[in-house]
Structures are given as structure tokens and as C-alpha cells.
Design a protein around this nucleic acid. Structure first.
Lengths: 242, 242
DNA sequence: ACGATACGCGAACACTGTTCGCATTGCAAC
DNA sequence: GTTGCAATGCGAACAGTGTTCGCGTATCGT
């Protein structure tokens, strides 16, 4: 059982985070102020520093929370075990579609948190290699690329037409990912990561443009439009066109 | 001939913008401070207010400059007349490839300015409908979509396979764009804007991910990789796969 | 030559992040 | 049960920020 102080501390941290999240959501990340949070929860500004070393530390906590939350949402939508275990969905490409839709849904439901993750980074900042943000990123990548690998293993994806492979030597990072994916589909070709990267960029580009409001002129039903784009990409991917 | 004061004013405003741009480029947009600019050019903080009403006004000026600069770079690379006139390039799809490469090159050469444009927007901000940012955006769109239309007119692009069109009624915005594009290619189908939007999102997604440093694990030669993705998309587009 | 306008500056106000020293509270060991 | 210690909260303060105001001075149109 946690001691009284420990429970109080957890409650206070939660209160601080809730107030901070509300400030970020309603006013944007730059408007997050220590003093504002302190006012919202009825505490002195100096008191916050018993829980966070700096304003940046608070923002970082919000960011990692958002990241893991997004990774959870995408994993859940794909039927992908939260611990990394594979449920072997019957239709990997359908699960892939669901994952991308979940990605968009999450981003549009909480644009401030999404932009906290993928918006303007602070120059020179390098995420710690084993930090939570990198972990969450890899979890999303594992779902997206893993489902693609399962589809390949099921024979649902044709090899790429054209001859892009020769022109693109894969990096060590791609080799690592490829090695892991080959646990799911041993005969994955070298250009597989590159091909799926295009799909991921399409997802991210569409969502980013929509969240930042640069697509509203073209979209009457953005959700249906996004799904249509994803279906088209999956079909092209399936046929080896991309 | 401009009067002495007018020349001095132009010089001063240029000096302010240069100092501000340097601050943004080296430290990021949040670190742009009126007082810092004032220090850099040897002026009192209050003096800056003779030239800009507020810090936001200065930032907005930097943003519009960046936007028109980017639009210039893309237009120039595509051989597209700066005033909107068409040079009717011999190979529209090659020009399209060049335009997207120019987009990436500009973004990576000046990441701070790129993120000023496409990074986290301030919540609730709505760009003025006839403002310079909208104009620059439309200029880039005109190049990208216009080249696609020219390729269609030249018979280089196949109709979309699949049946996405029926599921997606085009919006008024798409209708407007379509009407303009049909000056270049009268027989453009209704789903043409949607198809090219996918290409644009792919471009933007790849560049955004690369600029924010979320793709370095996968890219040994990012420029070649980007070009490869663009060539693959153009080929798939040409064949009607996307 | 003169009145109006633009310019630049110092001082001030309200706000921010952050630190310091001092009380007070809860816990844990003697 | 008392005593010591660590955790907690607060008020005051410092440096920095954006912005405004009032005052001189330089430049302009007339």
C-alpha cells in the first residue's frame, strides 16, 4: 500500500498534468505557463517545482504521454497486442487500414497533442535513444510495418514493379527493421521497408495537412476522403505499383 | 526617387528582418525576441515598434517572406512563369519531379523557415483569405496541379483504375481548382484533384518527416531516396494505379 | 522658415521562468 | 512517544520578456 504522501504526490502530479494539458489544448503549447498551471490548481508557482524541474520537463511529460497514447490507439485499432505480441489478424491489410484510420482519428480528436508530437521540434533537441518517445515511435512502426509483412507472408502483396531497389541501398536502420520483420515473413525483399515508408509518409502527410488546416478547401468529408486514399494506396501496394 | 527617410526606413526594416531571421534560423521561432533583435542591430527595444506593431507582426512578415520564397523556388524549378503564365514544358511529369525535388531542397536548406510555414500553427488563427500566405500556397498548388493537368492533356496519364470516384463527391474548392485546370486540359475527370492530392500529401509527408528528423534511421542518401519515391509515385500515377 | 510627421530612446508596467529561505507537514527510526 | 529528517508549500526576489508612454530630435512637405 502506498503511503499517504505518495498518494498525495500522485494526485498532485495528475492534477498538474490535467491543468497543463488543458492549457495546451485550448491555447497551444507556447501558451503553457507554469504560473497558469499553478493558478488553475490553486498552488503557488514555486510549488510546481517540487514536481517538475522546469517548464520543459512538464512539456516533455505531456509529450511522452501523448506519444504512448497515440501508439496505444493505433495498436488497439490494428488488433496488435500491446506488449508487442502478434495476434495474427486474419486480414492484415484490413488491419493496416484500420490502423491508419485510428492514427487520423486520434490526431483530429486531439490536434494539440498531435502537434506536440509532430509539430515544430526545438532545434538541436535529440530524443534520448531509449526514451519513451523513441519507444512509442517504434511501437507504431512495428504495427504498420509488421502488418505489411504479414500481408506479404500471406501472399497478398506483389513485388514492386519497376526497378527502384537497385538505386537504393538500404541503411543499417532499414536492415535492423528488415531483420525483425523477417521473423514474420522470412522472404521479404530488400525494398520492402522503402515501399512501406511511402505509405507511411502518405498517411502522415494527409493527416498533417488536415490537422494544420491546409486541406479544408478540398475536403467535404475528410474522413471518407482519407479512407479512400488509404484504400487506393493499399490497392496499389498490393499490386506492386508502389 | 525615394526620399532619404524612405530609404532609411527600408534599410532599417531589412536589417530588422535579417537579424530576426538569423534568430529564428539558429534558435527556432519561439526564441525570436524583440529585445534580441534590438540588441543585434543596436537599437532600443521600443524603437522596433516604429516598424512592427508587435512580435507577432514581425513573425508574420518572416512567414510570408518564406512562403513566397518557397513558391518562387518551386515555380522556378518547374519552369513555371512567375506571374502564373505557362511555359508549356515539353515533359510535364519531368517538371513535376523537379518541382517536388525543389520543394524538398528548399525545406532542408532552410528548415526553420519551412517549419515556420508548415509547423505548429497557433490555434484559432485563420489566414486572411486574400493574404500573401494563401496566394503563395495557391501558386505552389497551381504549379503542382497544373503540371499534372498538362501531363493529362498530353495523354501521359491513365484514368484511375478502381472506383474511388463515386465514393467521393468533390467539394466547391475542388470544383474551383478543377475549373481552372480544365483551361489546360478540358477533359480532366472529376477525381483528378483527389488523385493529385495524394501525391502532394506524399511529398509533404516525406519532407515533413525528414525535416523533423523522424526518418534518419531509414535514409542513408535522403535526396536519392526522395527522388526515388517521387519517380515511383509518378509512374504509378501515370499508370492509373493511384 | 515653419509646422507636421517620423524616428529613437529611456523609463515604466505587467507578465514570464526560476531560485532561495523559511515554515509546516508526514514519515520512520530510536 | 519522541525526535530527526525528508518532502512539501509559500512568499519574496531576480532576470528576462512584450509593450506602452512621453519626451526630444531629425527629416519632410509646404
Amino acid at each position: 500500500m502506498a503511503t499517504r504522501r505518495e498518494r498525495a504526490r500522485l494526485a498532485t502530479v495528475a492534477e498538474i498534468k490535467a491543468a497543463a494539458l488543458q492549457q495546451v489544448a485550448s491555447l497551444g503549447a507556447p501558451e503553457l505557463t507554469i504560473r497558469g498551471v499553478a493558478r488553475a490548481i490553486g498552488m503557488s508557482p514555486a510549488g510546481i517545482y517540487r514536481y517538475y524541474d522546469s517548464r520543459d520537463a512538464l512539456l516533455t511529460d505531456l509529450l511522452t504521454d501523448a506519444y504512448t497514447d497515440l501508439a496505444d490507439a493505433v495498436s488497439a485499432a490494428a488488433g496488435w497486442g500491446p506488449a508487442g505480441g502478434v495476434d495474427a489478424p486474419t486480414d492484415p491489410l484490413a488491419a493496416l487500414l484500420a490502423a491508419t484510420v485510428a492514427y487520423r482519428d486520434w490526431a483530429l480528436a486531439q490536434p494539440a497533442r498531435f502537434l506536440l508530437i509532430f509539430g515544430t521540434p526545438v532545434p538541436g533537441y535529440q530524443a534520448p535513444p531509449q526514451g519513451p518517445t523513441v519507444t512509442a515511435n517504434q511501437r507504431m512502426g512495428a504495427v504498420f510495418f509488421g502488418l505489411g509483412a504479414l500481408a506479404w507472408a500471406a501472399g497478398q502483396v506483389a513485388p514492386a514493379s519497376g526497378h527502384r531497389t537497385a538505386a537504393e541501398p538500404t541503411t543499417e536502420g532499414q536492415q535492423d527493421v528488415l531483420a525483425q520483420l523477417r521473423d514474420l515473413a522470412p522472404d521479404l525483399p530488400d525494398d520492402f521497408v522503402t515501399r512501406m515508408l511511402g505509405g507511411w509518409a502518405l498517411v502522415h502527410g494527409l493527416v498533417t495537412l488536415e490537422v494544420t488546416g491546409q486541406l479544408h478547401w478540398a475536403l467535404s468529408d475528410p474522413g471518407a476522403s482519407f479512407t479512400g486514399h488509404m484504400q487506393a494506396w493499399i490497392e496499389a501496394f498490393r499490386q506492386g505499383a508502389v
